[in-house]
């Protein structure tokens, strides 16, 4: 049955959180209006609460062990699978990035392509970063001595505020490629591509809880993550600069690893380098005597 006018009424999507592989609404029951850059209504997104953040940390902690123990080859395959799933929904993401960022459609397409390629790039790092960051150490004695990087654990990620998809992928992929689990706070004003990305993650064989995504007010959620004692590290990339000192102070209570924000948002199209992987790994050195 169609409308007498001949136009079909679109079925809208409810944008929810992504926690432990499921898509719950905020436990607080709150939502907030998301608009495009012209102020037109796009959706009501979930306004995540402190409790949602804590639930996300619990889900992330449970995911650390299976994900970090998965063979590097397997993690690489799954990250590549994310790229495949993203490619299949390319047109949808171009529309969402266009709405969110107000860029031209050709620029939106370029950003989506770059985001897809970034997953591929990091997929390849899964079984290589340990060789780039690790070492065999020629100690002055009869010992076999080597150093390997290991995931630090649960990483809170404040996603960039401007680059809704490419920036998001550029901060999430390097955190999880090594075996960390992430609690991500999406761009406050442009959260919709992030939520749609979580639908991609949910269908890419990524274990539940490896990426958890919260939408809402960065300034409301971030302090709970910065002070959470079961979070090992925090990426402050998307932190408002006036909030940075307070968040870094809170993070020191359990000696979190902190990636500080920059004065202006990064140029996400540039070569990412290894720093975003290396910041969220720990170097473990193992000694054993050599003898008979």
């Amino acid at each position: 049955m169609s409308d007498p006018s001949g136009e079909r009424l679109a079925v809208r999507k409810t944008y929810k959180l992504f926690i432990g592989g499921a898509f719950p609404r905020s436990e607080s029951g709150r939502s907030y209006v998301v608009t495009d850059t012209h102020g037109n209504f796009l959706a009501n997104a979930a306004l995540a609460s402190r409790k949602d953040a804590r639930d996300a940390v619990v889900a992330a902690r449970a995911a650390v062990k299976p994900w970090s123990k998965a063979p590097a080859y397997n993690r690489g395959q799954i990250l590549y699978r994310v790229a495949e799933m993203l490619e299949g929904r390319r047109a949808q993401f171009v529309t969402e990035v266009l709405d969110a960022e107000g860029v031209s459609s050709s620029e939106a397409a370029r950003l989506v392509d770059a985001a897809i390629d970034r997953w591929v790039w990091y997929a390849g790092w899964a079984d290589k970063y340990a060789q780039a960051l690790g070492s065999s150490n020629p100690v002055a004695g009869p010992y076999f001595d080597f150093s390997t990087p290991e995931p630090t654990g649960v990483v809170a990620v404040l996603a960039p505020q401007s680059s809704s998809l490419l920036g998001l992928v550029s901060v999430v992929a390097p955190v999880i490629v090594s075996g960390n689990a992430a609690v991500v706070v999406a761009s406050e004003q442009q959260p919709l591509p992030a939520i749609t990305l979580s639908e991609v993650l949910a269908t890419s064989d990524l274990p539940a809880g490896v990426v958890n995504l919260l939408t809402g007010l960065t300034a409301e959620i971030a302090p709970w993550l910065a002070s959470h004692l079961d979070v090992n590290a925090i990426d402050l990339t998307g932190a408002p600069l006036e909030l940075w000192p307070e968040l870094e102070r809170a993070a020191s209570d359990n000696v979190k690893r902190v990636l500080r924000p920059t004065e202006t948002e990064a140029e996400w199209s540039a070569d990412p380098g290894l720093r975003r992987i290396s910041t969220f790994v720990e170097t473990k050195t193992v000694w054993h005597p050599i003898g008979v």
Partner: peptide
């Protein structure tokens, strides 16, 4: 950050030393 197997308290300038968690970074 350092695991000594069948030895302990060995140090060397070529061997990275440092902690996990609240032992530092």
């Amino acid at each position: 950050g350092v695991v000594w197997a069948n030895t302990f308290n060995k140090f060397d300038p070529t061997s990275p030393f440092g902690g996990y968690k609240e032992s530092g970074f």
